[in-house]
Design a protein around this nucleic acid. Structure first.
Lengths: 240, 240
DNA sequence: TGTACATCAGTGAACGCGCGTTCACTGATGTAC
DNA sequence: TGTACATCAGTGAACGCGCGTTCACTGATGTAC
């Protein structure tokens, strides 16, 4: 009797919760579609209209526009992180650092080309009047972490040629701090190389996506791959 | 008599024209200030309000919001181009390629930090519903041209160690096309190196400006300088 | 099992605001005889 | 030099629209006895 009650209660709650979660998903999906059309000028009313609801109904799910935006930002970071981690995991030979590295870089570009609005949301100019709450950072850090993780594996297995950079002391101090907090035992030079590559990766994808490559480079994919190769060499990823 | 008439006419015209140009300048300056506060959501009415005019008065100077935005974009590209060209020109030893290169890179960063809104306008996510007219490209190309110009000087004087990149054929073809059109006689490898450095420069500045370096690197300037140094080595700029 | 109650999704009207653009107009400033 | 005319900057009202958020409300769905 008691277990049945609990069960019913649990099921009932989870049913409501499931419907609710589904609705939240639909709202976010619609909002994402609007993001793609209108950039970061996300309009609650337009989203509600698309869903056949009245705009005030959205307040049952999100406290306001900013909360919806935050959810979209976190989702975007996570989607990108998922894509990158999955791409890395898909490489069977875990010792093939360069293969894993390229898989991860490609995943970033592929995801960005598939979801340009979400990419712009997290890596484009800041949305006016919106300040990202600090809890977005755990999601934000996933992609760079995945990249550095590959390098850390290389350090552990001795397969990475640790590049030498004569870093200025303050920069070294910053990197040591980050290493200690997040990647204990990782040499600062490796983190530095990872950041350089991450910056370049971001630059290359943004250039392509934001149109700075128009009328200059048409062989986009091969250009990108080659750029990644140059950076991979620079930070000591072994050639096959 | 005739010359006097012409003179009067000329003076009068130039007086009106001068007042007009001044007004256009004030409108753009005010718009720039709004850009800094509200991002790319530029409001004509707000600009007019700040100038103590009625919003419809702006239509004497710009055909609409998009035309004003275009003017701001062109101005931003030109301001950045001016800053970079001036920084390069200020280096007295024209044979000091690396010094000129660093001066140019620094100028980009300094300008971007001083005018983040203008930087975001030209290098951030595209403004929704706005398509940049093709004549913005002549202004847009100035900064990368200045950078490549330094490298071209290095090729001419034999001071640049031309880096070897085994480029895929389609990429090479793209670069050859651009070289022929804009930098006759320049080896494609040099253009490729210039683009890689330009991409990295853009990535580094954007990361810093858009907050991706927060809580990671605090020694921003030294980090930037070192990154530029790495890229300079990569593309064959001689060390002193 | 059936009934009284609580929860909560969604409604519709309203508040108060801002926006880009148009249009007929007023005055001042320059132009031409 | 003085007068009739053209140019043009700026006004103010209006059109038609969109926005985020609030609030009291209706019903349906689940909960507890």
């Amino acid at each position: 009797v008691l277990s049945k009650l609990c069960n019913n209660l649990g099921m009932a709650a989870s049913l409501r919760a499931r419907v609710r979660a589904e609705m939240i998903g639909e709202i976010k999906a619609t909002a994402r579609r609007h993001l793609a059309a209108d950039g970061a000028n996300l309009s609650l009313r337009a989203v509600a209209r698309d869903l056949g609801m009245v705009s005030s109904a959205l307040y049952r799910y999100f406290a306001g526009r900013d909360e919806l935006l935050t959810a979209l930002i976190v989702d975007a970071y996570n989607a990108m992180g998922d894509a990158v981690e999955a791409a890395d995991a898909r490489v069977e030979d875990r010792g093939d650092l360069r293969g894993r590295w390229f898989a991860a870089c490609r995943a970033v570009r592929t995801w960005a080309l598939a979801e340009p609005a979400e990419y712009a949301l997290i890596f484009g100019s800041p949305v006016p009047g919106y300040a990202a709450p600090p809890d977005t950072t755990t999601a934000a850090i996933r992609t760079p972490s995945a990249l550095v993780g590959i390098l850390a594996d290389g350090v552990a297995s001795g397969r990475l040629r640790i590049a030498e950079f004569d870093l200025p002391a303050p920069v070294r101090a910053d990197l040591v701090r980050v290493c200690e907090a997040n990647y204990p035992g990782l040499p600062e030079e490796v983190l530095y190389g990872g950041m350089a590559a991450w910056i370049h990766l971001f630059g290359a994808v943004s250039f392509e996506l934001f149109g700075q490559l128009n009328n200059v480079v048409e062989a986009r994919e091969q250009f990108f791959e080659h750029q990644m190769g140059v950076m991979a060499d620079l930070i000591g990823l072994p050639r096959p």
